[in-house]
Simulated scan of single mutants.
Amino acid sequence: MPDAVAQVASFAVDIVDFEAARAGLHAVREQVFIVEQGVPADIERDALDPLCRHVLARDAEGRPIGAGRLTPDHRIGRMAVLAQWRSRGVGEAMLQALVEEACRLGWHEVSLHAQVSALAFYSRHGFIPYGPRFSEAGIDHQSMRRRLDAATPVEGREAAQAALQGVIAGARRQLLIYSRELDPGLLDQSDAVSALRRFATGGGEVRVLLQDPATPQRALAPLLGLGQRLTTAFAFRAIEEPVDRDYPSAYAVNDRGGWYFRALGHRFEGECRMDDPARARQLHAIFDPVWERARPCSEYRALGI
Rank of each mutant, 00 (worst) to 15 (best):
Q96T: 12
R145S: 14
F134W: 11
A102D: 01
L98R: 12
E101Q: 14
R75H: 14
L95H: 15
H74N: 15
Q84V: 01
L176Y: 00
W107E: 14
R69S: 03
V154F: 09
R69M: 02
R69C: 06
A120N: 07
Q174G: 08
V167S: 04
S111G: 15
A150C: 11
A118W: 03
G91Y: 11
R69Y: 02
V167M: 05
R86N: 12
S87G: 06
G91N: 03
A151Y: 01
E92D: 08
R147D: 07
T152M: 02
G66D: 09
S135E: 13
A97M: 05
H125S: 04
Q96I: 07
G156K: 07
I139H: 12
S87K: 15
G156S: 01
R88N: 09
C103T: 14
E100L: 04
L95R: 13
A80F: 07
V167P: 11
L148Q: 03
A80N: 11
D73S: 14
V90M: 03
A80I: 08
H113T: 03
D140S: 13
A80Q: 08
Q142G: 09
I139K: 15
A67Y: 04
A120H: 13
I76G: 03
P129N: 06
L98Q: 07
G131V: 01
R157D: 11
E101G: 07
E100M: 00
D140K: 01
E158F: 00
L148S: 06
F134Q: 10
G89Q: 03
I177Q: 05
V167K: 05
A120L: 09
Q174E: 12
L105H: 00
E155H: 09
H141Y: 06
H141L: 04
E100I: 00
G166D: 05
G106H: 14
P153G: 04
S123Q: 11
E100Y: 04
M144I: 09
A83N: 13
W107Y: 13
F127K: 08
Q161T: 11
Q161P: 02
R172V: 09
G131C: 05
V154Q: 08
A150G: 13
L119C: 14
Q115K: 12
E92Y: 00
G170K: 05
C103G: 05
S143D: 14
A118S: 12
L176N: 05
H74P: 08
R75Y: 04
V81M: 10
T152Q: 02
G138P: 15
R75N: 03
W85D: 14
S111K: 15
L176H: 10
Q96L: 13
G170E: 02
W107N: 10
A80P: 13
R78I: 02
A160S: 11
V154E: 04
A150S: 15
A93P: 07
A102G: 04
P132D: 10
E92F: 00
R78V: 04
Y130K: 05
G66Y: 01
I76W: 07
M79C: 15
H141K: 09
R146P: 09
A93M: 02
S111T: 13
A83R: 15
Y122G: 04
F121I: 09
A137D: 11
T71P: 14
G166M: 02
M144Y: 09
E100A: 10
